[in-house]
């Protein structure tokens, strides 16, 4: 995993003219050209995939965003009218704000929970393997299935959460978790934390394990306490991994959809509609594919900007 973030030594073996020169014939590719060709062939499948599944749809979406484009019927060129409409669409603006709010709340939670879990399971004491597995177990569950599971868990009449609180005499009636915005958001955040912090844990743990133990030991010898070691040695050296985790989690949160679609249905009173939710809604409930495309393009621009800023900040901070 560390190869992801660290710059390994360049693998350029210097060209040695003695090898193969004698066998070279006219029309043959030079070693350098062959090497280039191999490189092109190696990236070709990936490039094809990206063209087919990213660039072409992107261009298509942009093209559609300039049209009034119903699912059925005739489409009509309307220029940037869809983009102008987006800034007057109160639901979309609210959805964008809510998505930002959700991202701001969940990102630190995921990071801190992931860090704590990673600290707990990074050692090689007996049993850590077991806990690693336990914490990681929710990760491979699909978002949709996990959401349905939680819908049932918090259901006031049949779900166990309300029943447990009632048995502990903390509440008189099983609470209606999904009836208020704050508690509905809380349920979603709890579900997402449960489901994705295992992934963050694994990433951060491998980052921690890549830190040479000599550094920590040296700090200990110099008289640093546990927390000092953590804040002055581990955390700074973990920066590249933290950056990776952060970019993943922010992008994932800005694109949140399934969890809200399934758990809250955008409710109560449309207060938990996210940006992607609204894009889905305009495209497939009201069939305005052109407008939906315009919203997607806007969201993509925001996402690109946010990721760019994050990577810039991180890039600067890794230069010691």
């Amino acid at each position: 995993m560390s190869g992801f973030t660290k710059q390994g030594p360049r693998n350029d073996t210097p060209y040695t003219p003695t090898a193969g020169v004698g066998r070279r014939r006219a029309g043959d590719l030079s070693w350098y050209q062959r090497r280039q060709l191999t490189g092109v062939l190696c990236v070709l499948p990936a490039a094809l995939f990206i063209t087919l599944f990213f660039f072409i749809p992107l261009v298509l979406a942009f093209w559609m965003s300039l049209y009034r484009w119903p699912l059925l019927g005739i489409h009509k060129f309307i220029g940037v009218a869809n983009y102008v409409a987006a800034f007057h669409d109160s639901t979309f603006l609210h959805a964008a704000g809510f998505t930002a709010e959700y991202t701001l709340i969940i990102t630190p939670i995921l990071l801190i929970v992931g860090l704590i879990l990673a600290l707990l399971v990074k050692g090689s004491r007996r049993g850590t393997g077991f806990f690693r597995t336990v914490y990681f177990l929710p990760v491979p569950i699909g978002f949709a299935s996990a959401s349905f599971l939680w819908v049932w868990l918090v259901q006031p009449d049949v779900g166990p959460f309300g029943r447990i609180l009632q048995m502990m005499h903390l509440v008189a009636q099983p609470p209606q978790w999904l009836a208020a915005t704050a508690s509905a958001l809380f349920v979603v955040i709890a579900m997402v934390t449960w489901k994705t912090s295992g992934m963050q844990m694994i990433l951060l743990m491998s980052g921690m394990q890549a830190i040479p133990t000599e550094l920590e030991e040296a700090a200990r010898v110099d008289g640093a306490g546990r927390w000092q070691v953590f804040f002055h040695i581990t955390l700074p050296l973990l920066r590249p991994t933290l950056a990776l985790v952060l970019v993943f989690s922010v992008a994932g949160s800005l694109l949140a959809f399934d969890q809200f679609y399934i758990i809250t249905g955008g409710g109560p009173s449309n207060s938990t509609i996210t940006a992607v939710y609204w894009i889905y809604h305009t495209s497939f409930v009201t069939f305005q594919l052109g407008y939906g495309s315009a919203l997607s393009i806007l969201l993509m621009l925001v996402l690109a900007a946010v990721s760019f800023v994050q990577l810039r900040l991180i890039h600067r901070s890794t230069e010691f």
């Binding site: 639901t91 249905g265 409710g267 109560p268 009173s269 449309n270 409930v285």
Partner: peptide, 17 residues
Amino acid sequence: NALFNDNNGPWITMIDD
């Protein structure tokens, strides 16, 4: 569909509010 069947549409939002 947009008026009455949409779970985020005006009909159900009105009833909920």
